[in-house]
């Protein structure tokens, strides 16, 4: 399986990449929503999962989610917001725009894996 990690912080991308790699995903990185869309346009196979920061330059995570939801080719992608935005209204907005799950920073590795398990994206037994 493939996962796209979209965050303008390289440090955060490394953390997320480490976690999804442990779960046997091949990870692709993007530094903002636009870069992610550009990468997706060139990918023959759509990744199963995207982990998406909210506040990023060029195109933020919410706009990215909206764009993905509007594109039938990307319909199968599971979208998880991973952000410090933690107002209730923001979570509601992201879910309404089409995000499937929402992880608030800071998160522990265990919490991230549990969220992915909720979405059926963790093969049983991979839960280390």
């Amino acid at each position: 399986m493939r996962a796209m990690v979209i965050d303008d912080s390289r440090a955060m991308r490394m953390i997320l990449k480490r976690i999804v790699t442990k779960l046997n995903f091949d990870a692709v990185e993007a530094g903002d929503g636009q870069e992610a869309l550009d990468l997706l346009a060139d990918m023959p196979e759509v990744p199963e999962l995207a982990l998406i920061d909210w506040n990023m330059p060029n195109m933020n995570g919410l706009e990215f989610v909206t764009n993905v939801r509007a594109d039938p080719r990307l319909r199968e992608m599971t979208l998880v917001m991973v952000t410090t935005e933690s107002e209730q209204s923001q979570i509601v907005r992201a879910l309404a725009a089409g995000a499937h799950e929402y992880v608030i920073k800071p998160f522990t590795e265990g919490a991230m894996i549990e969220k992915l398990a909720l979405l059926g994206l963790v093969p049983t037994g991979a839960n280390s």
């Binding site: 509601v92 992880v103 522990t108 919490a111 909720l118």
Partner: peptide
Amino acid sequence: SQVEVNRGLPASQLVQYFER
């Protein structure tokens, strides 16, 4: 805490059954 609500609680239920 934020860390606690991250653990195993679906976001849709967080917004429905909790308040800040």
